[in-house]
Structure formats: C-alpha cells, structure tokens
Design a binder for these strands. Structure first.
Lengths: 199, 199
DNA sequence: CCTACCGATCGGTAGG
DNA sequence: CCTACCGATCGGTAGG
C-alpha cells in the first residue's frame, strides 16, 4: 500500500519522457534528437533517463508499437463488421483520421523515423504495416466491386486515400490549418477523398 | 582546351556524389547517413569526398536548393499566364507532379530532412516554401471565386492537394504502385484531386 | 537522481 | 585520392 505511490510516479515519469521525446522527434527527427535534448526538456541529466527507459531505441519501439497496435485493432474491428462496403471503407478512413489526430506527435514517426528501428522490431513493424494496408486494400476492392466507388487500380486508390490522411501529420505543410477543429478536419478529408474539389 | 576534360570529370563526380547521397538519404535519412556510407557507395575513402564537396551540409543545401528553385520557377510561370483559374490550378498541380516524379530522390528530402538545414539556408528554404504555398493558395482562391471548384477553406483545400501529390515521395506507402507509368500516375492523381473516388 | 567516465562514431583537416 | 589523425558528441554504464 505505501509503495504504490512511488510506482505510480515512476510510471508517469516514464510516460512523460515518452511524450516529450515524441514531441522532439517531430521537430528535429529521431536521429538528430540526443538523450541530452530529451533530458533537458524533462529537467534531469541524460544519464538519469536510463532509470525509466532501457535505451533510446526503446523509446522509438514503444511509441511506434503502441501506434501500430491501435491502427491494427481499428482495421480488424471494421473488417469483420456487417455493413455495406462503402460504409466500411468510410469507417476505416474515419478510424485512421481519428487515430492520427489523437496521436499527432507519434503519428509523425510513421513518416521517416520508423527507418531507425532495429531488428527484430523493424520487421515486426513492416509486417504490421503491410497487413494493415492489405486489409485496407481489401475494403477498397470490395467497394469497387460493389460499384460504391469508381473502378481503378486498388493500390493507387489506397495510396491516394492514405496520402490524404497523412496531411494530418504533415501539418507543417500549411500551418494555418490548425485553426480548424478536429471534426471539421475529418469531414473535410472525407469529402475530399470521396468527392474531390470540383464544384 | 586540354584541361576541359579534367574539369568535366570533377563536375560529374560531384554530381555523382550528390545523386548517390540523395538515394542514401531516402533509405536512411540525412542524419543517419554518414560520410563513410556515401564514400562506400562512390568507392573512395570518406576523406576524399571533401575534394568535391565542402561538407555534408552542402550536399543537403545543393539538393534542396535546386529543387526549391524548380518548384519556384514552375509556379511563377503559371501564375502570370493568361488562362482560366481552373486551367491554371490544374497546370500548377501537374507541374508539381512532374517536378516530383523527375526528382523522386531529392523530393523525398522535403518530407523531413529539410529540418537538418542550418541557418541561413533554413530560413531561405522556409521563405521559398511559404512563397510557393501562398502563390498556390492564390490559384485555389481564384478557382473558388470563379466557381471552378467548390467553396471551402482555401488552406485546407491546398493541404489536400499537396498531400495528394506527396504520395509520390511517400511511395513506400504502397510499393506496388511503382508498376504504374508516370503518365498514368499523373492522370490518376489529377482525377482523384478533382473528382475523388466516388462512382 | 547525479558525477564521472568510456568506447564508438562522427564530420572534418593536414599533409603528402 | 589516401593515411593518419583530431576534437566533439553520442549513447550508455558504474557506482554511489
């Protein structure tokens, strides 16, 4: 009983480090962020970080792993649902948008920093990503076959969809978009994907 | 006359280094690519690279600078043209796609590695990017006002457009798309941006 | 959580 | 273009 508090503190300190590290990775990139940089934000010496995390690599593994799991669970839940192919595709896109918006700093790691993963985590990550894309592609193919969306190369269509959603973690693209609420942003992306920009 | 050949050789060797470095940056990222890595691909010792380039930073500056200039020239040419706002917007998108496809390795630097630029080049780069986006946004606004595209937040629409085009340098997203020809890819992106995926 | 420290690697220079 | 080398910084450990 008396020692639950220190344990909680250790846990939240670890979470704090992970969150602040993710923010730094967005700004500078994983490789260009030193343990000293992270320590400075936390307010300790670099060596002290090792009481909470195993090493720098672990930070990346935990952040990317947690995110990959969330995407993976999300797509699996949708795939097994009973609904029209069009509804399922839209739901998958909305799921991806929501997960991205809720994990903006972490999602950014998907752009480039996943390349800094070491084996065996790199292979595990790439396997999960491939599985996610294949399930997503299945939804696209079903939507094409049912006539819900126009005919075309499914890989290309999937590429367009995921790129549109990626604008979320590429938000420095055009920074003013931060004025927009999460809900507005989601609706705008959905409308863009399905209808395009023509009048 | 007699010494034009050595000069040519020096020039092409420099170009060779720049091209191979760009490829490595795509795979590993700028920070994670060492001069030794680049030298190994070229087939010399790391120290020998400094006969052709000033330092590592210069590689990044030259690659990104050349690219930024190409985008900048492209958009300026389109803005002053006499054409409908819809035609100009489409032409700007096609220009962006073409420049991206012709400089696939370099374009990838725009995703993350530009953050490794040092001053004053970083400020110069960000200024050029801002100018580019503002000119592009002007084309979007004109297209909205003329009724050529639907009403909406211009920043958001620009964000969608540029994200769609960015799928080119994010091609590891779904690698099978490499089977598609440049022309097919361009048409597919244009159709997606203007019409979306609905049937 | 800190001080002290280490081996490895990095970008880069000197000098030939 | 290479060998030899250097100062700085990195991630990480020991020991308290």
């Amino acid at each position: 009983m008396t020692n639950t508090k220190p344990e909680e503190q250790t846990l939240s300190k670890r979470e704090f480090i992970l969150e602040e590290a993710a923010k730094l990775f967005v700004v500078k990139g994983f490789k260009a962020t030193s343990m000293k940089d992270i320590a400075a934000v936390i307010g300790v010496e670099a060596a002290s970080l090792y009481n909470h995390i195993k090493n720098k690599q672990e930070i990346l593994v935990v952040l990317l792993g947690g995110l990959a799991d969330r995407f993976s669970i999300g797509i699996h839940e949708i795939v097994v649902k009973k609904a029209s192919s069009r509804e399922k595709l839209e739901e998958a896109i909305r799921m991806h948008i929501k997960v991205s918006l809720e994990n903006r700093n972490k999602t950014h790691l998907i752009l480039e920093d996943w390349k800094q993963l070491e084996e065996p985590e790199l292979t595990r990550y790439l396997t999960l990503r491939k599985e996610y894309q294949d399930l997503f592609k299945g939804l696209v193919i079903d939507a094409i076959n049912s006539g819900a969306i126009k005919k075309g190369n499914p890989e290309l269509i999937l590429n367009h969809i995921l790129s549109s959603v990626r604008s979320i973690y590429n938000q420095y693209l055009y920074s003013n978009t931060s004025k927009v609420s999460a809900q507005e942003y989601e609706e705008s992306i959905i409308d863009f994907i399905f209808q395009g920009i023509s009048g």
